[in-house]
Design a protein around this nucleic acid. Structure first.
Lengths: 204, 204
DNA sequence: CCTTTTACTGTACCTAAAGTATAGTTTTTT
DNA sequence: AAAAAACTATACTTTAGGTACAGTAAAAGG
């Protein structure tokens, strides 16, 4: 990794913190470069404008999140064999990881950007959609694999169940921010886990 | 209602649309006053600054939302007697109302502001919290009334179930925006309805 | 109908922050 | 040692929030 790449990552790390704390608009480039110890010219050497910064940020966020989910699913797959048990264990590991965070979860860059989205920034909206579609697929495939073994309780579209998990996460981020309560996220993941258990008739 | 109040409401209506479309920062006062056909002086006569605008906007949004929920609950209460059936009917009416919207739901001002929140705007954060607490109470009390008649399936804290509905709504708004799909909101409300039915052992 | 508030307009100006331009300098890589 | 990459420094433009304040039109009260 070259020196330029290092600086870019340092800026992105600072920007992510700042944006989740103060919002996209509440984060000034001038504040960022001061923190990073570089000059304006240096910043615009790496990012052509603020929109490009957010694009890089989202890409990074989505990649890290995918790695995080993959790690949890891999651990679950190692520990149990059954697809339903794997998914339930994943949700438990996820809830645990969220409750072990030192402070309240900073929230989701996707959601943060989603509401700040100006109509002209189509590239950002596309990235947003792409990232969310990845998560949707990840959960949906797992649920479909479960449904091949376990009868689904009702005629419920499993894509909607995948969306439900994403919705609960995004919503729990909002609640966490508003209430400043770090228990909301793990609680809501476990409530959803309870629903999944019920969906597939499992009661342990 | 005086002429000043009318103008203020016109500005708030325009601002709500603009903010949900382009975000808080993406909405310029200069754009608003052009749409409203007033001057900058006129704007600052009504709102001392942009933060004051958002405060008024949130107050209005919370009030309208409370009226909306009250109307739905009243209709449900008129049609059926049983607390569980009332709550389930409320959720059905809610889902219906959301699917009957001409376009995708514009989203929630609370969530929009929550991520744009600069740390100094404490008044805004307080309003946010207050509004959400009202909804939490509204749902929680209903759930408690149900639990007095129907056995709750597991040792689940009903406050978390109330939070789940709010989280699902906020999350569904995000998904709706990202996917530009107006079915997500009603679908997720009905999925939550299914969970509530299960919680209280009801299967019709 | 006249006076006092209320609800503005118009003008001018200040400041913060995004963004541009560009010449020069250091650092890293080849 | 040369070339490319990674910057600094300076200076400027534009946009938008916000202030200040004098003047004016319209509504409301007596």
């Amino acid at each position: 990794m070259g020196k330029g790449e290092q600086t870019k990552i340092r800026i992105l790390e600072l920007a992510e913190k700042a944006i989740l704390a103060n919002g996209f608009a509440g984060t000034s480039i001038e504040g960022l470069i001061e923190e990073a110890g570089i000059t304006k010219g240096g910043f615009f050497y790496h990012f052509k404008d603020k929109t490009h910064l957010i694009e890089c940020l989202m890409q990074r966020y989505i990649e890290n999140d995918n790695i995080f989910f993959d790690t949890l699913f891999n651990r679950a797959d190692d520990l149990v064999e059954d697809p339903l048990q794997q998914y339930l264990l994943f949700l438990k590991l996820f809830a645990e990881a969220m409750s072990e965070l030192p402070s309240t979860h900073p929230g989701c860059i996707i959601a943060s950007v989603c509401y700040a989205n100006k109509s002209y920034a189509q590239g950002v909206a596309d990235l947003n959609k792409e990232g969310m579609e990845t998560w949707r697929q990840l959960f949906h495939i797992r649920l479909q694999n479960i449904a091949q073994i376990y009868p689904v309780r009702t005629e419920i579209d499993l894509k909607k169940v995948a969306d439900a998990l994403i919705a609960i996460l995004e919503g729990a981020f909002v609640l966490t921010r508003v209430y400043q309560d770090k228990n909301i996220l793990p609680d809501q993941i476990l409530l959803h886990r309870d629903y999944v258990k019920y969906l597939f008739h499992s009661h342990n």
